[in-house]
Simulated assay, not measured.
Amino acid sequence: MTSHALYQVDAFTNRVFSGNPAAVVPLIAWLDDALMQSIAVENNLSETAFFVPGAADADHDFHIRWFTPGGEVRLCGHATLASAWVLFNRLDWNKDTVRFHSASGPLGVTRKNDDWLELDFPNLAFETVETPDLLKQSLGSIPDTAFFVPNDTNYMLVLECEAEVKNANPDMRVLKALGNQGLIITAPGQSCDFVSRYFAPGMGIDEDPVTGSIHSVLTPYWSERLGKPALIAHQVSARGGILKCELRGDRVGIAGQAAFYMEGFIQLP
């Protein structure tokens, strides 16, 4: 039997039982992909993050990967933020920034003076498309035009108001037919710049509580529409979360807080 530490952190919140819970498993070397997938299924959270140290001469400190119960993903915000929290607060990382290498390229997380952690993520391009029939079948009356994010396999629908986002009740059985593609819905916010929700039933996540990575798309969209680079976002799921976002050319700053929930060990054969 081998033992590995496991941490669970609620991301994009300052209190437990809100935000988005992520499992974090630090490793010395990669486990078999099928084993990491089994751990993610066992954890049954939207994401389990695994990271290993980078080489001594590498331009990153750690290599990070993320698994949902349905498979590996290319980019994840809340589990990256949770991983950085573990490094800063449990694993004695003594620098103000930790650099990760990922399937989506370099990612950074910087510890701010106010206990917020800021992700340095890519600015993801999106293109205008005709709204797929599956989305119309799942949600009913929605815009005829949507946006598609090719580098993150998501669709995005912009609705009229916050209430429409909060009241949306997609048919998950229909939405699941998108496979590994997810759906972002968003609208102007009443007490913030914009709100959103995110659904990915094809990846084993009916609704993700707070999704850092989708703000790599939401931030450039709303920054252009509202005419300002710095934005406050609220993901209005049942658990909810607040994010501070800033457009910086080809990068996006996405900041949030984190609340520690538990730590323990997993026993593997």
Rank of each mutant, 00 (worst) to 15 (best):
L124D: 09
N169P: 09
L159D: 08
F88N: 02
D92K: 06
F88R: 05
H78R: 03
S102F: 14
P122S: 05
E127M: 08
L75P: 08
T110A: 09
L91V: 06
H78T: 05
F147L: 15
C76M: 06
G105D: 13
T80W: 10
P69I: 04
D115L: 10
D144H: 12
E72I: 01
S104V: 06
F88M: 02
L81F: 02
P106L: 15
G70F: 08
P106H: 13
L139R: 03
A163I: 10
K112L: 12
D115T: 05
G108F: 11
P143R: 07
G70Y: 08
L139A: 05
L134P: 12
V98C: 00
V129L: 07
D92H: 05
T80A: 03
V98F: 04
L107S: 07
T110F: 09
W93Q: 00
K136Y: 10
T145N: 13
L139S: 10
S138V: 04
T110I: 03
A84W: 01
D115C: 08
A103E: 14
A163E: 14
G70E: 07
N154M: 14
L124Q: 10
N89V: 00
K136W: 11
M156R: 10
K112C: 12
P150G: 00
W93C: 05
P132K: 05
H78N: 00
L107T: 07
R74V: 12
N167D: 15
H78D: 01
W116E: 10
L134V: 15
R99W: 13
H78E: 02
K166S: 12
N169M: 14
S104N: 09
W93P: 01
N123K: 13
K112F: 08
N167S: 14
N167C: 07
E127T: 09
L157K: 06
V129H: 07
L134K: 09
E164W: 07
L91P: 02
